[in-house]
Amino acid sequence: MLSRRIIPCLDVADGRVVKGVQFRGHVDVGDIVELAMRYRDAGADELVFYDITASPQGRHVDKEWVERIARVIDIPFCVAGGIRSVADAREVLHAGADKISINTPALQRPELVAELADAFGVQCVVVGVDSLRDEDGQWRVRQFTGDVERTQALAKTTLEWVAQVQDLGAGEIVLNCMGSDGVREGYDIEQLQRVREVCAVPLIASGGAGAMEHFLDLFRRVDVDGALAASVFHSGAIAIPQLKQYLHAQGIEVRHAVS
């Protein structure tokens, strides 16, 4: 049976892994290759590298660090941030990334999703969706979330957008539930359930992990393909080997890492 994936997300600025402090100011936490290998050894199923400087500043992803990771790593990895064209995506994929994830550029020009799927196949194309519930109870997407000064609410509902990008050729959706992000009180089960109903491609949950029980609750209540988290892994609050043992003991299908 297909395993539920555990996916650490690493923020990258200028080729180094950084940690954001309330979306402002970033602290260097280490060398990108060293951290990638540490997570690989811990049994991460996949890694996401989010170039936090590329998208808001209108820069492209620096493929030099993508290639450095590709040379050493033997699990899949995805690069997010700063990919706005087929040419950008080609650079990143040819440098060795397995997938590319797009967010704001897809909102600005949805046809980009179709262009990427045609050029590289749907399996390479991940669409990141930043979603927040509004006062009327609807979840709607946000753009420019990489930069707090520029973050904008859009009229498009999250459910509409997820359906649209699938039609265009998205091979996977990462749903970042902004309301639960950073709060560490668990994934946004209700929203993920609703999105799951309209999402036929793999769905990855993001935002809210604070304890191992949150992952269990997520996988028991929503048929998501994976769970993405950042700070709980980086801080050491949750160790991936223990998390996987725990999930396995509770009957959740996870990959046991072989050393």
Partner: peptide
């Protein structure tokens, strides 16, 4: 049992 989705993407045995 979970849904079978295509593409088949991820770790399997």
């Amino acid at each position: 049992k979970p849904a079978i989705r295509v593409p088949h993407m991820g770790w399997n045995t």
